[in-house]
């Protein structure tokens, strides 16, 4: 069970994922924004894993957060959850599939998919993205996925088949590096394949060039 594995990982000392911090508590588990870890007594308390979905929906300015890996989670809340299943569910609302993806990758059950393969299978309005050149792809990914402002996931895919993501800073493709730059005991937060937002951005790039 994924939640059993998560419980083991927490006992082993992991206490962070993306912008989140978590820990065992007297009544179960506590989940919060890492930056609030020293001021949790002032945070608003929530008790349902589903509250996580609402908290993750908007940033602190009220803007919609379509990309869950973006480093702009709002602060000032704490989730008090009764058990590990609820913690797992809450983490899945903040960072959908992050834990399952890491566990599957660690067990060799899943592989990264290169950007070219992702773009080449697109149809309809995204079919045009197969025209994205390698150079365009590299600059796009370097900018659109950067950890300091766009997405905290660690990228394991390259642009072309069998190519590593060596066009990125080495830290961006190293699962042992905490992408928030804080050197915490963070669970790896992997990106095994370009998301739909990047495919949409690729379309914009191609359209701009062909104009």
């Amino acid at each position: 069970m994924i939640s059993d594995e998560l419980a083991c990982l927490i006992r082993d000392g992991y206490n962070a994922l993306g912008e989140l911090g978590f820990a065992e508590s007297l009544s179960g588990y506590r989940l919060y924004h890492w930056a609030d870890r020293n001021s949790l007594s002032q945070a608003r308390v929530y008790r349902s894993s589903k509250d996580a979905r609402e908290i993750a929906k908007y940033d602190s300015s009220g803007a919609y957060r379509p990309l869950k890996g973006a480093p702009n989670l709002p602060r000032g809340w704490v989730l008090e959850l009764p058990n590990i299943n609820d913690l797992k569910r809450a983490l899945d609302f903040f960072y959908p599939g992050a834990i399952a993806t890491w566990l599957a990758f660690r067990e060799g059950k899943t592989e990264p998919v290169c950007l070219r393969q992702t773009l080449n299978r697109q149809t309809g309005m995204y079919r045009v993205t197969r025209k994205l050149t390698a150079d365009q792809a590299q600059s796009l990914v370097r900018e659109a996925c950067r950890s300091d402002s766009r997405c905290l996931r660690t990228i394991l895919w390259g642009i072309e088949p069998d190519h590593p993501p060596d066009f990125l800073p080495a830290s961006k493709s190293d699962p042992t590096v905490d992408q928030t730059g804080q050197k915490r005991a963070a669970l790896p937060f992997l990106c095994l394949e370009a998301c739909n937002l990047l495919v949409a951005a690729a379309r914009t790039t191609v359209k701009k060039t062909s104009r």
């Binding site: 990309l67 959908p96 993806t101 899943t110």
Partner: peptide, 9 residues
């Protein structure tokens, strides 16, 4: 998210 590529994991 989760995308169709991620959910079955």
């Amino acid at each position: 998210e989760p995308s169709l590529r991620e959910v079955l994991r």
